[in-house]
Structures are given as C-alpha cells and as structure tokens.
Write a protein that binds this DNA or RNA. Structure first.
Lengths: 359, 359
DNA sequence: CTGTTAGCGCGTTCAT
DNA sequence: ATGAACGCGCTAACAG
C-alpha cells in the first residue's frame, strides 16, 4: 500500500465558486436578453433561427453549462430520477438500474441511486434524502413498502413506479412480472418429474416480497398436487453463496431430505449446487435444484442451473418510459406484467426411484 | 404481458408544485425568522437551545424538508457526487459504486451514476450532464481519459478521483491497484509451472487502460523470461461470456495453441473455461487458464478459476473518503495503491509434458 | 419573436 | 442570539 505525496489542502477544494459563464454572459455575448438564451435552450422553436444560431455560438464560445440548481429552483423540475434498490450485489438490480439509466439519459435525465439493503426503515430514510436532493420521480424495487414511504411520496407529489413485481390490484403503479407464477411453473415441472419431497431456499421473506411470492408459488403448486412443504425443508438465509451453501448443507443432512430444492433466486440455486458438490450428492440423479433469474452464474455451472429468465433489463427500460410519460403528462399504464420463461438445464431431472438412506 | 387500466393523465404528473412547507412556514410556526430556521439546520450551536427546540418541533410538525435546489443555488454545493463507470454489467463497478455510496450516504451525500460503455466521447458527455445537474465531485474508473474531460473538470473546479488504477506519477489523483503487477505475478507463476506458449484474452485495449495494463504485465513477465507473446495468440473481444468463449475457441483451434491463457478479467477466464468444456480440452491438464478480479463467477466453476483478488469494495470506500476529505478541506493523498492477492485454484497446473498435435 | 420583470427557497451578510 | 434584506441563476408571465 503506497501513499504518495501527502498534500495539505489550504481550503475546501470543492467550492467551485468561480466566474462560470451565466446565461446573462451568453446573452450579452449574443446581444440578446437572458430570457432568449433560456428559450434557445428550452424551446428552440420559439426563437428566430438567426438569433438562435447567434446564441448557440455564444454558448459554444463561452462553454456555457446551465446551472441545474437554479433551473430546478425556478422550474420546479430537476430532471433527476431516484432509483432505490435493495442492493447492487449480484448485478440484478444494477442491471435494471443500468437499463433505466440508459433510457433516461437519452432524455437528459440523470439517475440518483440509493440502496437500502433490505431494510424498509432505511428505504424510507434514503427516499427522504433523495427528495431533499430534489429528484422528480422514483423507481423502487418490490411491491411492499412502508406506508410512511407512500405517505412521503404522496405529500411531496413525487411520481413513482414499483418494479420487479406485477399486480393489477395494487394501489401503486407497478412494472414487473408474476413472481409466484415463476416458481409455480418450476414446481409443476418438478412434480411432473415425479418429485414429492420439496425444499425451499429463500431470502428472508419479511422485507422481500419477491422471495415471499416465489415461495408462495411453490406452495400453491404443492397444494394443488396434494403435497405439502415440510417446514424443516425450508431455510431462510441472506442472499449470498456462502449462506445458501450452508443452508443447503443442513437440508442435505436431514434423514428425509427433499428430492427437489427450489432457490428463490440463482444465488440460492448455485449455493445449493455447491453444497451438493461438497457433500458428494449427485445433481440431478440424487436431487434436483432450481433457481430464478437465469443469471450467468447459474448458466455456467456444471450441471447448468435450471432457472426462470426474468425481464431484468426490460423492467428498467419500461420503468424509465413509465416515469418519462408521467413527467411529460402523457398517458401511462398502472400495471405492466412482462413475460418470464423457464430455462431447463441439467440441474433438474426425474425424482430418484428409491433411496438407500430413506426412512 | 398485461396492461391494466390505461389512464389519461390530465396534466404532467411530475410538477410537484404544491404548498410544500418552506423555511418561512417553519419560521412562522415557531415564531422566529427564516434565518433562524436556517441556522438551526446548518449551525445549531449558534442558536439558543430553547428556540432551537421550538424550531425543530415545527420542522417535525410540518414535516419540513429543505429544498435542495435552493440550498445548492445559494451555498454552491449540492452534496451530490457523480460516479462515472464503464458499465454495471458483471457487478464489478456496481460493487465499487455501492461501496462509494454507502460511505457517502452516511454524510448525507447522494450518488448520481452514469455509464459510458467504454466510449470516451460518451464519458465526456455524461460528465458534462452531471456537471449541469450540479454534482460537487466525481469518481471515474481508469486512469486514461480524454484531455477534454480533464479540461472540463478543471474549468468547473470539480474535484475528482480516478479509480481502478494506481500510478503515483499520474497528474491526477487516483486510487486503485497495480493492474500490470497482477498479471505479471500470474504469468510468473505460470512460467514457473513450465508454460512457454501463452495466450491472452483481453478487453479492447483502446479505451480500457485496465486491460492494457494487464496485458502489459503479461508481456513484461514473458520478456523477462526470454519468451514472446505470439500475436496470433492474442484475442481482443467485448467483455461478455459469449465473446470470450468464441475468442478462446479460435485459440484452441490453432495448431500450436498456447498451454496457458490469461484472461484480463474473470469473464474472459470463465469464457475460456466454457470453450474448453465445449471442445473437450482438459483444464488444467491440457491448458491452464486464469482470470482477474476473483469473482464468484470464476470461483464457482469447475475447475475453479485461478484469479487475482482486486480491492473492488475498498476502492469505492477509499474514493468516498478521498472526495469527502477534499470537499471538506481536509488533507488528502494523491495516490493510494491497494494490495491485490493471487488466488490459486484448479484451473492452473503444470504445463503438459508433450503434446500430440504439436508441430 | 423578444425583452422586462419578478421571484423560486434558501443562506448569508449586516444590523440590532 | 436573532431579524431584515439581499441575491444566487434561472425561467414563467406578461408586454410589446
């Protein structure tokens, strides 16, 4: 670790209080009023082409950059959007945010991000902070949030869209997919393969409605097939490979261990694969394993992880379009449910016919 | 895909121009002037404890949230930091940004993100956009950037720190690690294992100084050992598993293919593993493969990918601390070089003694 | 089509 | 310790 040339900063470095060109400077250079400069930049059609050119020339010359804060203060719009996500680990929400941002950047919006690490109180705090920073609208992940959060958004009249879940009956605009249907379909497939004893590796459901819905999908499929989910076969853990592997190890050590284990996302699925690998349990001969999200992490395992492809990127793009439409006063949809698709790989197979250690 | 209840928005939804409580409202409620409200929030010590309490009570009552734009306009500080990264795919820079954000949030800073997708011209544009949005300071990824970018930052007096590279001789503050040393160490290890014919799978080096430095590290190790890197054994590709796998397939089909292939990051390393898997080439018996960054993607492969652990999170935290120090006028370091660590796994082994298809 | 005027909501003088 | 007054840079409203 090298520390080179320590330097004493004489005064705060960040006060960029220099003679930066203002709209008035541009106006003077172009021989017009500052109002015309503003019009050239914000509604160019309402300005004579000739003067418009003169102004743009002055803008280039002075390398004028409008002062966003002043603009926001006056126009009551910041052109900033808040993206509040649980976490940037495992790239899922980062990729959604990336898509959101790409779409928004094209319209000169910027994206302010905040994580809450699955803490609804923290979510509330960061949302308040973003409101203070002036964001015009929000994207949140998940359908369930603190009532106080919605009150805050209402009070400050901030449009928002919930993502990664779709529910037409929700009181709040949402864009996503049917999380329960995803695991329901997986479970149906496994039941058809002869599996009767299921396990579930899930994120803590309390503050994670995606995990909750995905668990519910499994339970519904089982119920419909006259099966039940033994509580001892359910493990909740933080979203990490280590925790998932450890939880799966516990399941594998049970005398009547499941023959099929669903992870509520690919991290749990891959963690489960790792546990099997370490304990010498064959997949899919001895046990079938699935994930959700169809990430490259699961795809590249041996055996490849059967999963459900979720619309990670599409959610971000659609959320951006939803918010832009609202901010520009165009029509918008209250709910958009995007399709998912099962992706079968070698981590799933027929239930083992008989098991030695069964009892 | 379901579209529920289309709704015609009568007017732009986003104009939050409602009677939001202002400092003046709070002042009236507390029976003081707005100046006192400001003082209570910004320098509480300069206010009588009794009145301070009255004001804070009014703040709570009215759920007053200061107007960030007005504050920025007046104080010339937005408490927003721009994080400009190449991409949020593969979680690397997302995790660095996450660490940056976590550290900054604690001091009431928010993080505005932008991606440039390895396009320096785009980087320039998004930086300008962020300046317009008023960010106080920047984190960038990589040491090499357009001269115009630095000119822009200089002109607008925005502090910045370059990351993911460390160079005490750089003209710009930087925090990272020695990219060349990482691959140099890997190459030395492989040379010691008897490898003489090397391959390189790299990101496009033109706008990616990390890839360039990592390639240079390999070349230096080879040069010192009296070896050379055959240009036909070098493949540049976009950072994606597919592209990496395809590039590796080409290398494998060469009659004098390398016995050791370095990927400039784990995506290339894992892509190479996939190619070997598909073509039936045994790793490490027939060929050794390495990556950089020590991601879970590589760690969970079979065989596990030998890699170099890079300070992904530490870079973000250190960058946050660097920028805070500068913005607050404290001392700061021009360069911080963090340690890396080789992580040996089963994807590397001794060079094969003899090869059938050799010629 | 363009200029004039006013004020967005704060923080910061300078008084008292 | 507190208040009055001003202005940051911009755009909305109105006049011409």
């Amino acid at each position: 670790m090298t520390k080179a040339r320590a330097r004493q900063a004489p005064a705060a470095d960040g006060d960029h209080r220099t003679a930066r060109a203002s709209a008035l400077d541009v106006a003077r250079a172009a021989g017009v009023s500052s109002a015309t400069v503003s019009r050239v930049l914000n509604s160019p059609d309402r300005v004579d082409p000739q003067t418009r050119e003169r102004v743009l020339e002055a803008v280039r010359l002075l390398r004028y950059v409008p002062h966003g804060a002043a603009r926001s203060l006056r126009s009551r719009r910041s052109r900033m959007i808040g993206a509040v996500v649980p976490s940037f680990e495992y790239a899922l929400y980062a990729r959604t945010t990336s898509a959101l941002q790409r779409r928004l950047n094209a319209q000169a919006y910027s994206v302010v991000v905040a994580e809450h690490h699955y803490d609804l109180a923290k979510e509330m705090r960061v949302a308040a902070q973003l409101i203070e920073h002036g964001v015009d609208a929000f994207m949140f992940v998940g359908l369930d949030h603190a009532p106080e959060l919605f009150a805050l958004l209402e009070e400050h009249r901030r449009p928002y869209v919930l993502t990664w879940g779709a529910d037409p009956r929700s009181a709040h605009p949402n864009i996503g997919f049917d999380n329960a249907a995803a695991t329901y379909a997986l479970a149906r497939h496994l039941i058809a393969l002869g599996h009767r004893r299921f396990g579930l590796l899930s994120a803590e459901p309390q503050y994670n409605d995606r995990a909750r819905a995905r668990g519910a999908g499994l339970r519904r499929a089982l119920r419909e097939a006259g099966l039940t989910l033994d509580p001892r076969h359910v493990r909740y853990a933080p979203i990490s490979l280590r925790a998932a592997e450890s939880a799966m190890s516990e399941l594998l050590m049970l005398p009547d261990r499941p023959t099929a284990v669903l992870g509520t996302n690919d991290v749990f699925g891959v963690g489960a694969l790792l546990a099997c690998r370490r304990l010498g349990v064959r997949v899919p001969e001895d046990i079938s394993i699935t994930g959700v999200d169809n990430t490259e992490l699961g795809e590249t395992q041996q055996p490849g992880l059967t999963s459900v492809a979720t619309p990670i990127v599409e959610i971000g793009t659609a959320a951006a379009e939803h918010l832009i439409a609202r901010l520009e006063g165009r029509v918008w949809e209250r709910c958009l449910s995007l399709p998912v698709q099962l992706v079968f790989r070698a981590s799933t197979g027929p239930a083992p016919k008989a098991r030695r250690a069964m009892r």
